[in-house]
Write a protein that binds this DNA or RNA. Structure first.
Lengths: 132, 132
DNA sequence: GTTCGTGCAAACGGTTTGCAACAAT
DNA sequence: ATTGTTGCAAACCGTTTGCACGAAC
């Protein structure tokens, strides 16, 4: 609660009720919701919240580095509160997206690619989730 | 031309004029066009071609393994005639998508990820293209 | 009293669907 | 005659935009 306020202020985001509600949901979401999913969820607590505000807010958060978007779901962007580098695993059956820690997978050779100057990369894996 | 016909037949796709036109464009495209881009390009040669037919055709081609889709562009799927495993590089400035051969980049550790059974993966890189 | 944020509806862009006309077997 | 293919328009879904109202410095 208090830390959310601080987190927004730290990034120069004026903390309004709507933004706090969105932040509360999306920053501690372990899932990777789309904007519409955020809207539907947060609307239950704040019924006056408009779709436009959710989109505006999410875009603002991305701009300010609080979230990043991922292009791993068809048809929609998903928002990820895990802004540090990491990889993704997508469950074939459910479409669920999981974060994979950066150190869990190693990539090599990307620095010596002729013709490309790689600034950033990620591994996108697909398969079946199984009990750990 | 002849080989296109064969390629379609081999995969059980009835080769119509529209499908051949789409196949001709998309199978030898070095770019990664969206469905709408395919429509616009192919329409110049076959002006009667409808949007729905292009979408139907592309989906059919994907289903039959002639193309694969890639989720690397915002707002739209792109179609890739390179169906073998490979990686992607996306130019930050232009948004252009380049294919990176499978052997150019090596990934390790994905087999020993606890909790995930990785069936497939790819590395998506972003950065600046430079003269090779 | 301006500036900034919100809400609503309309617009938009990519894609799918329903359906009637039309081949092709 | 049945089946598969096409074209058109409408519908759909995710997202953005225009604009008027309202809140906050």
């Amino acid at each position: 609660m208090r830390d959310l306020l601080v987190a927004l202020r730290e990034r120069g985001i004026q903390p309004t009720a709507q933004r706090l509600a969105v932040a509360q949901f999306v920053l501690e979401a372990k899932s990777h919701p789309t904007a519409d999913e955020v809207w539907e969820k947060v609307r239950k607590r704040s019924p006056t919240l408009s779709r436009a505000t959710v989109y505006n807010t999410l875009n603002l958060f991305v701009e300010k580095g609080l979230l990043r978007t991922q292009l791993v779901r068809e048809g929609a962007l998903v928002f990820d509160p895990y802004v540090a580098r990491h990889h993704h695993f997508i469950d074939d059956e459910t479409g669920e997206i999981y974060d994979v820690p950066w150190e869990a997978v190693k990539v090599s050779g990307e620095k010596s690619l002729r013709g490309y100057e790689v600034r950033d990369y990620q591994v996108v894996m697909r398969g079946k989730r199984r009990a750990p």
